[in-house]
């Protein structure tokens, strides 16, 4: 009898401990928006592929930011690197929309957007931030791989496609909501879609290692019907939009709904 009670109590204790650790981890997460998550290695079939080949892309394990970089975080970067202030940045590295949502060079102004993803930043600025933070931008394939992970907290009635199309169908709101306000996916990453578009390291390459002829034309041929010829799933309208969006970019562009998150090579899982 005594033994049974002991066993039950210890079990209960373990359970409590487990819960407590989970809780503290969650608390830590919410306080620390820079936290990263380990993305396990794996492979996936890319959205766009060379004609008549269904190649799988292998992804090594890596670390990825849980959230997009926020205005507040980016402010810290600008303060540490004043050459990236709005008034000092060269036109070559960022166009005239650079950080235009901020009040001043080193002042966000509106507290409601402090924890919103930073937008109106060029690829150069995003890369510089990543370097400063000791990280790097995720590659296109890494980003797409994480994007594939299913959502864990969407209402069951809503399919992912419908959710994405609804977001893409709306104009960008005046105030972009805070990070973490959309869905979380199975890999533990938030807001892969539904909040802002995101820069990737090689945003203007489409497929690596595919036929060189199609590589040259693929990106351009994303307009009109020819754009659908080499894609995995012709009903993946969200995919078309992501690739179409990236194809319209140049590295110095700063766009109101384009932010970024960082990645890092994994040390150990």
């Amino acid at each position: 009898m005594k033994r049974a009670v002991m066993i039950w109590m210890s079990l209960f204790g373990w359970l409590l401990l487990f819960k407590a650790s989970r809780l503290s981890a969650a608390l830590k997460d919410s306080g620390n928006l820079t936290s990263m998550v380990y993305i396990p290695e794996g492979s996936f079939t890319p959205f766009i592929q060379a004609v008549s080949s269904s190649q799988q892309v292998k992804i090594k394990g890596f670390m990825m930011d849980k959230y997009a970089v926020t205005n507040k975080q980016f402010l810290a970067f600008v303060k540490a690197n004043p050459q990236w202030a709005r008034s000092r940045v060269p036109q070559l590295l960022a166009d005239e929309h650079y950080l235009e949502q901020w009040k001043q060079d080193e002042q966000i102004g509106d507290p409601r957007i402090e924890n919103s993803p930073v937008t109106n930043i060029s690829w150069f600025a995003a890369s510089a931030y990543a370097k400063w933070a000791g990280k790097r931008l995720p590659t296109l394939q890494e980003w797409e791989y994480v994007m594939r992970a299913p959502a864990v907290n969407l209402p069951k009635t809503e399919t992912m496609t419908a959710y994405l199309l609804n977001w893409y169908g709306r104009p960008t709101p005046r105030l972009i909501p805070s990070v973490g306000s959309t869905y979380k996916n199975k890999m533990g990453v938030y807001d892969m879609a539904g909040l802002v578009w995101e820069w990737v390291y090689d945003f203007n390459s489409v497929v690596k290692g595919s036929d060189s002829r199609s590589q040259g034309t693929l990106q351009k041929s994303l307009f009109c019907a020819s754009g659908s010829q080499n894609v995995l799933n012709k009903e993946d309208y969200a995919g078309f939009m992501r690739f179409g969006f990236r194809a319209s970019l140049k590295a110095r562009y700063c766009i109101r709904n384009l932010g970024f998150r960082c990645a890092m090579d994994a040390k150990s899982p």
Binding site: P171, T172, F223, G244
Partner: peptide, 12 residues
Amino acid sequence: NSPNSTMPHNID
């Protein structure tokens, strides 16, 4: 293309 647009656009 308006800065408030979500999407890139073009014209044919």
